[in-house]
């Protein structure tokens, strides 16, 4: 079995490198092939556009917020010296509940799109950041709420989530 610390460190470094590469000006070299962050949650393969992802971390500390807890808003997550609202992705986008994930390695995904406030989500498994050709994406049929496109991956079809819609759903519970 690989050393967990090494594995975790390697993962963090990989993600940091990918995200840095994506969010640097050089990323404009491949405007037609955006990077996607692929992950699995509640047994469903999913993806976010990596440009919308601030970082991916090991889950450290979270804290409930009295009088504000609900199905979707789960409290605050500590990330890099900040406390960011923590959402329940399953509840927010209506994924199946209680799906058993045999290889669960929970990670904290920090969504930080340019035009919205940050949110954090705990997801079951993060596969990593990969370039993807939009020409290969399919429109979901029938249309699925929160899903922008269907992306083929070696792990099967992944739902590319519409970050703005997801965040809008998360924000709605706080209003």
């Amino acid at each position: 079995m690989p050393d967990a610390g090494t594995e975790s460190r390697g993962f963090r470094e990989d993600v940091a490198r990918w995200l840095e590469a994506l969010q640097s000006p050089e990323s404009a070299d491949l405007p037609s092939h955006p990077n996607l962050l692929f992950f699995r949650h509640a047994g469903v393969e999913l993806a976010f556009r990596a440009i919308d992802v601030g970082t991916v971390e090991a889950v450290s500390h979270t804290h409930r917020v009295p009088h504000r807890q609900g199905e979707v808003f789960r409290g605050l997550a500590a990330t890099r010296g900040d406390l960011v609202p923590l959402g329940d992705l399953s509840a927010a986008i209506d994924l199946p509940r209680d799906g058993d994930e045999p290889n669960r390695v929970p990670r904290l995904v920090v969504l930080s799109p340019a035009d919205a406030d940050s949110w954090t989500l705990i997801v079951d498994v993060v596969h990593g950041v990969e370039l993807s050709d939009p020409d290969s994406w399919r429109t979901p049929e029938p249309a699925m709420p929160f899903v922008d496109s269907i992306v083929e991956t070696p792990r099967g079809d992944a739902r590319l989530l519409d970050t703005a819609a997801v965040i809008e759903g998360l924000e709605a519970v706080l209003r």
């Binding site: 450290s60 500390h61 979270t62 804290h63 917020v65 009295p66 009088h67 504000r68 605050l76 500590a78 010296g81 406390l83 960011v84 609202p85 406030d117 924000e171 706080l174």
Partner: peptide, 24 residues
């Protein structure tokens, strides 16, 4: 506290403990 939470009854703010744990 994150302004999106609005005014939360019985809480004024947040902080981090010396061990990095959040505290309300």
């Amino acid at each position: 506290l994150d302004p999106r939470l609005g005014r939360v009854p019985h809480l004024t703010a947040a902080a981090f403990r010396e061990n990095g744990e959040p505290v309300l």
